[in-house]
Design a protein around this nucleic acid. Structure first.
Lengths: 137, 137
DNA sequence: GCGGCAATCCCCCGAAAGGATGATTTGCGT
DNA sequence: ACGCAAATCATCCTTTCGGGGGATTGCCGC
């Protein structure tokens, strides 16, 4: 983050210096000054396009943060989120139990709580809702 | 497309006129001219950011095709694809039967064929695989 | 016309999933 | 020290899924 700010700041400084230089040139030969004005405008336009493309377009492809807001509102515990990931992968309760190193009964209670917290009647339903809420990808 | 070109052209022309005016002002009161230079640079920078954000970032959210290749290779029938969509939504066999206007048994056979064609043991597994293959979103 | 295929429906049965509770342990904040 | 939430495991019971058959209809290509 700071790296990018420094980068952009440097670019701005460079652009400013360029402007100063161009301004000087323009004062010396004032007849062709309009050319430099266009160069300045074009240069900053290109710079802006570049910044916009990689700065603003970055968050456009949807950053999957796991949507902490929704998680907090629903009151999903860390363990339940883990189980939710397993559900997303289409695993059975038994598989989840083995992968998480807990008993089948424990997985069943976690799944049951996920179902009620997400307002779902089936595990597939829970996955679909979680995806809509942006909790999982 | 032409609409946008005309729009951008108009914006450029307006910016040029602004530049001309600012240039005149600068010549009159040459001491505060640097302020205008910064305004010009900033204005075009903002314009460029705007253009870059909505022009270049446009093709980023790529279209979803449904991956006909994978469907053909797996030999998935149209009806099976319909059922697959229902599975993605997390619906039960009974719900799917009602929504598609067929019997529960029919849905079960469709699901069973989807499972074997997708190499899945559970419906959730089938959904996960179909998503990986790009058949569904 | 016959073979193949998609789509439809049926039955049986075992396995998986879900609902309803209850209980224990552990860590965390007041 | 106490209360609370999370995590854990359990039991009993019902519903849903999935696997194994089998069967019919309609359409398409050879």
């Amino acid at each position: 983050m700071w790296k990018r700010i420094v980068l952009y700041g440097t670019l701005l400084a460079a652009g400013t210096l360029l402007l100063q230089w161009l301004d000087y040139q323009r004062l010396v030969r004032s007849h062709i000054g309009d050319v430099y004005v266009f160069l300045i405008a074009g240069g900053f336009l290109v710079l802006g396009v570049w910044l916009g493309a990689r700065g603003i377009a970055r968050p456009a492809p949807r950053a999957f943060d796991g949507n902490p807001q929704a998680v907090a509102v629903l009151g999903l515990s860390p363990r339940e989120l883990q189980v939710l990931e397993e559900l997303l992968a289409g695993r059975s309760n038994q598989e989840i139990a083995e992968r998480l190193g807990v008993s089948l009964n424990t997985v069943k209670t976690h799944v049951a709580r996920l179902l009620e917290k997400l307002g779902a009647k089936r595990r597939g339903d829970a996955v679909a809702r979680a995806r809509e809420l942006g909790i999982v990808r």
